[in-house]
């Protein structure tokens, strides 16, 4: 039992974070919003970092990293509000194909030649560029009605839901950070609004929600990587905890920004809209709640003090 990421894993995640901070700041989001969200140079940058081959075994030319590490990087993609479909391609489609033993198509994913993730029936609209374009509230999502075959494989769904949850945690952390920075500088009644307990306590609630969503995510990633029969329960738990933390933080961060939050001018809206979009992607709240309820109240999943890692 060793519930923590190695120094090496954390270093990898922080290098991705640094790269995205340098190359994918809010000025980039604004440019993508104006010019179209797909950007070959950004995609190529992610490919050059090796991220599309992150989960491909070293023997096959990949980085041979684990699913929990991929989740750690998906958090960073959420934090940077990445527009490219990296997470759905490299951390959902690739591990799915690996699990299926579908080696033939993996090469094209590893090199970044394939930029369209596998579609699943749970999502009526898929990320990608083929099919009829649909407009998302999130200006940086390229959403289309799928034309190719859609899968109904639960393993693909679980990977998708896990990584959606990871992105939501990153999105929530970014929004909390923005709200805190705003509350430090915005002055009213002769002091920064962040000095008022009414603001502090709301932001503290967001910190609590995020703090206790994160470990659920790692538990789910680990369960899925280990192929546990209970993995779907943990994935749904993670998606619920992450989604709830993200929506709470979006609403709170918006409130803290006051009227400025209602403008297109303030950065916050990109992350709020990502949270709104991703919370129902790869399974609605009700879908995931029902899966947990069925397992817990139905008795198929062991519970209690002596069943911590069932």
């Amino acid at each position: 039992m060793d519930f923590h990421f190695s120094e090496d894993s954390l270093l990898l995640a922080s290098s991705v974070r640094d790269y995205l901070t340098d190359t994918h700041g809010v000025e980039v989001l604004r440019r993508l919003d104006a010019d179209g969200a797909q950007d070959d140079a950004i995609w190529q940058g992610l490919v050059d970092m090796g991220l599309t081959a992150l989960l491909i075994p070293e023997a096959d030319g990949g980085l041979g990293r684990s699913l929990p590490e991929a989740a750690l990087i998906a958090v960073e993609c959420g934090r940077a509000c990445v527009a490219e479909p990296l997470v759905d391609v490299a951390f959902v489609s690739v591990p799915y194909l690996l699990a299926k033993g579908d080696g033939a198509s993996l090469g094209a994913y590893a090199t970044g030649a394939v930029r369209a993730p596998l579609a699943h029936r749970i999502n009526p609209y898929a990320i990608g560029t083929s099919g009829i374009a649909m407009q998302s509230v999130d200006p940086l999502r390229t959403l289309h009605a799928p034309t190719a075959d859609t899968s109904d494989d639960p393993h693909l769904l679980n990977l998708g839901a896990l990584m959606a949850g990871a992105q939501l945690v990153g999105v929530a952390e970014a929004m909390l950070h923005q709200a805190v920075e705003y509350a430090k500088v915005r002055q009213q009644f002769g002091q920064p609004i962040g000095a008022f307990q009414a603001i502090k306590h709301q932001l503290a609630n967001c910190a609590v929600a995020i703090e206790f969503a994160r470990p659920v995510l790692w538990r789910a990633a680990s369960a899925l990587a280990d192929g546990l029969a209970s993995a779907p329960v943990h994935v749904s738990h993670a998606k619920l905890a992450a989604g709830d933390a993200a929506i709470l933080t979006a609403e709170t961060a918006h409130q803290v920004h006051g009227a400025m939050g209602y403008t297109y001018e303030v950065d916050l809206h990109f992350w709020m809209k990502r949270a709104w979009a991703v919370q129902g992607y790869w399974g609605s709240r009700a879908f995931h709640y029902n899966r947990v309820e069925y397992a817990i109240l139905g008795g198929s999943h062991p519970i209690g003090a002596d069943a911590s890692f069932a």
Partner: peptide, 16 residues
């Protein structure tokens, strides 16, 4: 309430 103040001030960096 005190724990939320500590969270806001020491973890989030809001002003005391």
């Amino acid at each position: 309430e005190v724990q939320r103040n500590i969270t806001a001030e020491r973890l989030l960096g809001l002003p005391r």
